[in-house]
Amino acid sequence: MSMEVWWPRLRHETRDWLIANNGDALPVSVVAEITRAGGLVGTDAWWVGQNGPTGFYLSDAAVDWIEEVANGETPAAGTTAD
């Protein structure tokens, strides 16, 4: 499921955290909430970045998308259908 769909399903506090910590590794609790909201982090979706020993990261495109949301803009949909 694409970020545009699961983003509004997140708690307001989680969206605020993602905006304030944009580009940082996501805590396990945030990854779990994204998954519950429909974002499957084990896919090749446009918003999925690196997942490794240092944590799970959103893609550069997702970081840009969140920045646009934070700036009150309406971000474009993801770069691929997922």
Score class of each variant (00 low, 15 high):
1 M>A: 11
1 M>C: 02
2 S>P: 09
2 S>H: 07
3 M>K: 05
5 V>K: 12
6 W>N: 10
8 P>T: 01
8 P>E: 08
9 R>Q: 11
10 L>D: 12
10 L>H: 02
10 L>A: 12
11 R>M: 11
12 H>L: 07
12 H>E: 11
15 R>C: 03
15 R>H: 03
16 D>L: 14
17 W>E: 02
19 I>K: 10
21 N>F: 14
21 N>L: 05
22 N>P: 02
22 N>R: 13
22 N>S: 13
26 L>Q: 06
27 P>N: 04
28 V>H: 11
29 S>Q: 13
30 V>H: 04
30 V>T: 08
31 V>R: 13
32 A>N: 14
33 E>F: 03
37 A>T: 07
37 A>S: 14
38 G>L: 03
39 G>P: 08
39 G>Y: 06
42 G>R: 11
46 W>Y: 07
48 V>S: 03
48 V>M: 02
49 G>M: 10
50 Q>H: 12
51 N>P: 00
53 P>T: 08
53 P>E: 11
54 T>C: 05
54 T>I: 11
55 G>N: 11
55 G>F: 09
55 G>T: 05
55 G>K: 01
56 F>L: 13
56 F>E: 00
59 S>W: 06
61 A>I: 02
63 V>I: 14
64 D>G: 01
64 D>N: 12
68 E>G: 14
73 E>A: 15
73 E>R: 15
73 E>T: 00
74 T>A: 12
75 P>M: 06
76 A>Q: 07
76 A>D: 15
76 A>K: 15
78 G>Y: 05
80 T>S: 15
82 D>K: 00
